[in-house]
Each structure stands twice: as structure tokens, then as C-alpha cells.
């Protein structure tokens, strides 16, 4: 891909701050998504995922900070970038007065790499009534139409906000497959937000954990599984708990659980070798719950 050699980051956020009324949604977010990666953005409801995505794409003006898409400032994207960018919002409600067919035909005319056969095939595969007004379609059907729109433009940067929330298991697997293959083969960069962690574990190459408007963790998915672990310390050793833990929780019986990280030499903190201490590997969902709860 020419984009890769030119050295632009497909998605970049620097120091994003944003607040609605009194509530701070983003509190200094830095994020970079390298080319060809699938970044899973996880966070609880209300963690600021949608706001971050909107700010990243220049759909809203952040209070502070700066975002870039394929090397262009997010608020002033040119056609060069827009042609290669697709975004599917969380609760798609665009164009209720059009039918799925009309919407795809109309928007297809604006995208030079539009894949009309793909759009047609997916409409049938995902069983969408093509000639019914979208106002009459179920939320799941509308989300599928939007996903088809996003994928059919053959984007190089694909941004999906909670894409799988309203999909049935078959459509969900289809979507994940499509995302995975596009990223792996066409070099498409994908950012997708979700609170369903198991979706991420299949396709994501990186994850970023957004909690209360901040990125708490951003690394390769495989690394997260190997680099972090849960350490349980019996009551007599809690004073030896490592300082640099991602989360620490005192239990009722005086013991303590911590989420710890390997150091630069790949070793666990010394506390892990204390007698009675127990080290558990963590699945992504456990890690998420440990940190964000």
C-alpha cells in the first residue's frame, strides 16, 4: 500500500479533551493506530468510546487536542482521505426515508472504489429487504445496511462503533471475518469499539482500554495475555505488593489481588515468588473487568 510507505498513521489522536455540559467524556486521550492493524477499543458504557471516535474523525470539535486521519487534520479532511475512510456509527439512523437499495446506490456513486456486486451479495446474504424504507427496518437490519455501506466502499481506514451490538451470531461472524481478512490482506486499518470482549479476541491485533475518558492500556492483544497477570497475595504479604500495579483490590479477608505486568526483561515482580502468592494468567475479559470495575 502506498499509504504505508508514505509514513502516515491512519489514525492519530493527541491530547484529546472533551466534555458535554458538566461531564468530561475525554480526559487527555493519546492514541495511534498503525497501518494494517485492527485496534479494539474497549470500555464500559459511557467510557467515552463514541466521543473519542467522533473526535478522531472530525465529527465534533474537541475542547482541546488534535486528531489526524491518514495524515490530514480530522476536521479538514480532503476527498483523498474521505474516499478511503468508512465510519459506521453506533446506532445507525441515517436516511430513514430511503430503501437500502436506494441508499447504497446513491452513496456508491460518491466512492470511486465502490464494490457494487459485494453490496448486492451482502444484501442477500444478510437477508435485508432491499426495497423497504429503512424507517421500516429493524435496528439490526439498519446496522447491517450501514456495515455493508462501510465495507462496500473498500476503505483503507474502517471505523466501527459497537458494530456487533445488534447483529445475530451468523452476521457477527461474517463481519468479523470480513474485518479480519481486509486487515490482513488489503492492509486496511480498523478501529472498532465494543464492550463485547470476545469479538475483539478473534480479530483485534491491538487493544486499547478506555476508562473514564483515559486510555489505561494500549498494546498488542497477544502481549496483553502474556504480559499481564493477576497476583493474589495472602494477608501476611500484602505489604510487599508491587507499587506499579494496574489495579489493586483489598479483599475482605485481608488478602489482596493485583494486576501486575512483566518488567522490561520479561520477569514478573518479585512479589510473585513469595510463599503463598498465586499468579493467574488472565483472559482479556478478566483483565478488562479487573481494571475497569
Amino acid at each position: 500500500m502506498s499509504e504505508a510507505s508514505s509514513g502516515y498513521l491512519p489514525l492519530l489522536a493527541r491530547g484529546l479533551w472533551h466534555s458535554y455540559a458538566q461531564h468530561a467524556a475525554l480526559r487527555g486521550v493519546d492514541l495511534q493506530v498503525p497501518q494494517g492493524r485492527v485496534l479494539g477499543l474497549i470500555g464500559r458504557n459511557g467510557a467515552g468510546k463514541s466521543t473519542l471516535i467522533r473526535a478522531l474523525l472530525g465529527l465534533l470539535v474537541p475542547n482541546k487536542g488534535y486528531a489526524e486521519v491518514l495524515g490530514e487534520p480530522a476536521l479538514q479532511l480532503t476527498d483523498r482521505v474521505k474516499e478511503r475512510l468508512a465510519y459506521v456509527p453506533q446506532q445507525p439512523e441515517a436516511f430513514p426515508w430511503l430503501t437500502a437499495e436506494q441508499m447504497l446506490t446513491l452513496l456508491g456513486r460518491f466512492f470511486p472504489h465502490w464494490d457494487a456486486p459485494f453490496a448486492r451479495e451482502m444484501l442477500t446474504r444478510w437477508q435485508i429487504p432491499a426495497t423497504r424504507p429503512l424507517a421500516k427496518c429493524s435496528p439490526g437490519e439498519r446496522q447491517r445496511v450501514e456495515l455493508i455501506r462501510g465495507l462496500a466502499s473498500r476503505p483503507q481506514v474502517l471505523v466501527l462503533d459497537e458494530p456487533a451490538a445488534a447483529l445475530d451470531p451468523v452476521a457477527r461472524r461474517d463481519l468479523l471475518r470480513e474485518v479480519a481478512l481486509r486487515a490482513g490482506e488489503a492492509g486496511c486499518t480498523v478501529l472498532f469499539s465494543t464492550h463485547i470482549v470476545s469479538d475483539l479476541e478473534r480479530v483485534a491485533s491491538q487493544i486499547a482500554l478506555l476508562h473514564e475518558g483515559r486510555v489505561l492500556l494500549h498494546c498488542d492483544l497477544d502481549d496483553t495475555k502474556e504480559r499481564y497477570a493477576r497476583l493474589w497475595l495472602p494477608p501476611r504479604h500484602t505489604s510487599a505488593a508491587p507499587v506499579a500495579a494496574l489495579s489493586r483490590r483489598a479483599q475482605a479477608d485481608g488478602s489482596m489481588t493485583l494486576v501486575i505486568e512483566r518488567d522490561s526483561h520479561g520477569e514478573w515482580p518479585l512479589a510473585a515468588q513469595l510463599p503463598g502468592a498465586r499468579l493467574d494468567t488472565l483472559a482479556l475479559e478478566d483483565l478488562f473487568v479487573e481494571i475497569a470495575a
Binding site: 494494517g36 485492527v38 461472524r173 468479523l176 471475518r177 479480519a180 481478512l181 486487515a183 490482513g184 490482506e185 478473534r202 480479530v203 483485534a204 491485533s205 497477544d222
Partner: peptide, 18 residues
């Protein structure tokens, strides 16, 4: 092939090639 494995399990091809 990497693609076949990735498509069959809906996983990232980079994981398979790794």
C-alpha cells in the same frame, strides 16, 4: 493457507502467519 485459516475461524491473518 493463512487466508483459509483466518477465514474459517474469523481471526486475524496476522495471528495465523505469526
Amino acid at each position: 493457507s493463512v487466508r483459509e485459516v483466518a477465514a474459517a475461524h474469523a481471526i486475524n491473518p496476522m495471528t495465523v502467519s505469526r
